[in-house]
Amino acid sequence: MTKVPHDAVVFVGDGRKALFLRNEGDAQSLNLKAEAVFEHQSPATRMQGTDRPGRLSKGPHSGQRSAVESPNWHDIEEHRFTKQVAIAAEQLLRSGSAKMFVIVAPPRTLGELRMALHADVCRHVVAEIPKDLTKLPVWEIEKHLLEAPA
């Protein structure tokens, strides 16, 4: 069972949606209340990149050229969104609104968050759960947190 202390902020997110929930209950009976919701609307790929991919020459006289792979605009936007969420977590810590964090995110997002979070925030993370719970209602998130291994 994952311990979510009273007044801890539970971050539940992926690369497109993030919830900051505060535990107003205790570790045995969670009572999560939404504090902030971040949702990123990523436009269609055709709306994000308008230029054709570039081409590279193999050498000055070879006459061979190869195409450069197009960037994955959705991955780039998810990475930016993760950085924005990390900044929001730092602001919560600096303002004194949060003293402890529990992070619930898919493994890839969890890894990106670890790199994006400020060291001060990382010191206040009491648990990490590698799951995607962003599409679940709050009561189901509470249930998953109580069942998750510590």
Rank of each mutant, 00 (worst) to 15 (best):
T2H: 04
P5G: 08
H6G: 00
V9M: 06
V9N: 02
V9R: 00
G15E: 03
K17D: 06
K17F: 06
L19C: 03
F20I: 06
N23D: 00
D26N: 11
D26I: 03
A27G: 09
Q28P: 10
Q28N: 14
Q28W: 14
S29D: 11
L30A: 12
L32Y: 07
E35Y: 00
V37L: 14
E39F: 04
E39T: 09
H40E: 15
Q41E: 09
Q41A: 06
Q41I: 07
A44K: 08
M47Y: 09
M47V: 10
Q48A: 13
G49L: 13
G49C: 04
R52L: 15
R52N: 13
R52P: 10
K58F: 14
K58P: 08
K58Q: 14
S62C: 06
Q64T: 09
R65S: 09
S66K: 12
S66P: 02
V68A: 00
S70H: 10
N72E: 13
R80E: 02
F81N: 01
F81Y: 01
T82L: 09
Q84H: 14
V85I: 14
I87R: 11
A88P: 01
A89F: 03
A89Y: 05
E90S: 06
S95V: 05
S95D: 12
G96C: 10
M100Q: 12
M100W: 01
V102C: 05
V102N: 02
V104K: 01
P106C: 01
P107C: 04
E112M: 13
R114C: 11
R114A: 11
R114K: 15
C122A: 15
R123L: 02
H124Q: 15
E128S: 12
I129H: 07
P130G: 10
P130E: 11
K135M: 13
K135S: 13
V138Y: 02
V138R: 05
W139N: 15
I141C: 08
